[in-house]
Simulated assay, not measured.
Amino acid sequence: MRSEGEATAMPARRASPPPPPWEALPLVAPFLDAASLAAASCVSTSWHAAFAADYLWARLCAQHYPSALGLLRHLPDTTDDSASSGRCRCSSTTTSSSPHRRLFALFRSASTRSRVLPAPRLALADVAFAVDILTAGGETILSFAVAAAEAGGGVKNAAGLFLFGVDVGGRSAAIGPGEWRVRWTAVRTGTRGDGGAPAAVLMMDAKVPAARAAGAIVGFGGGRGEAGVAAGLPAPGCGGARLEAEVVLELAGEEKMIEKVRLGVMCECRYVSADEGLRYLQHFLL
């Protein structure tokens, strides 16, 4: 037993291990991945010299993005390599710039930029279509308005596309001879509940030459055919429009009675998806 007043001996504190010798760092560096190299290069000047060496990043480029090496001579020479995986902006990282590190960071960031587009803020339930088909003299052949969410029935391959079909067979409308005109307006109704006023954009106002209407293939004895028109859509910003609005009339009989009207938006001869069409419309309607 300790005698009274005897000092209690404190356990000796274990000394911190010494840092690894600088010469060992280059031996470890080739075994690290990009994120570890970037983080280690921020520790100190000596660690930066070991872990930011250009040959290490050249090896990673060759391993992950070999095609990128051909672009190295086309990139500007800059000393800011802070866009690397570690996002380090400490002063030591800018003292010695690695061109291959910048190249690796450039191609690593490419995957984050290639992301899925956000869902449109406009829904089909918010949109209605108004269509007028007129003679060259302005006489109405057929006019109708329909909610986009209620259109589309019976259109082949319309699933997920900005393609809608409206059955007008009970209206006894025939296109008849001569030139005719199609006017298609998309309208944002006041059903969104966000307090916004209704808005509209003219999708098409196009004339259909008499020759094109006369060329609609309608056989004898109740045959069927089509007549249609396409026109470039207004661009949502500067520059030319790539999208086209298309209106096709499905006709029946020798009198060319209109049975169905198809409305769609196309890009390079294909119908765009419903989301693509809505993203386009929201530039004008929201």
Rank of each mutant, 00 (worst) to 15 (best):
D194L: 10
S111W: 07
V229P: 05
E254T: 07
A235W: 02
S46V: 10
C88R: 15
V28E: 10
C267A: 06
L75A: 05
A125N: 04
E150D: 15
G253K: 04
S111K: 08
G215T: 03
H100M: 07
R262K: 09
A39L: 13
L281R: 03
P20S: 03
S16A: 14
R121I: 02
P17M: 06
G165H: 01
R181G: 01
R192Y: 00
G70V: 00
L75C: 10
A125F: 04
G232V: 06
A231K: 07
F164P: 01
R270N: 12
R171H: 13
H64T: 11
L233T: 05
C88V: 05
A216F: 05
A110D: 11
D77A: 14
F107C: 07
A245N: 11
H64E: 14
V218L: 05
S44D: 12
A29Q: 11
G176Y: 04
S85R: 13
D275T: 01
R279W: 09
A29P: 13
G86H: 07
G195A: 07
S91Q: 07
L117W: 07
L60E: 14
V247W: 00
R212V: 15
F162W: 09
S44E: 08
A206P: 05
A24N: 06
T93S: 03
E179F: 00
H48N: 15
A274S: 12
A62G: 14
C61E: 10
D33L: 03
A52Q: 14
M266T: 08
V127D: 05
S84W: 14
V248T: 15
Y280V: 01
I258G: 04
V131K: 00
R14D: 05
G170D: 15
Q282A: 02
G70A: 11
T95Y: 08
L75F: 09
M266C: 06
A38E: 08
L27V: 09
D54R: 07
G154C: 09
F164A: 00
K207L: 12
V247M: 06
R181P: 03
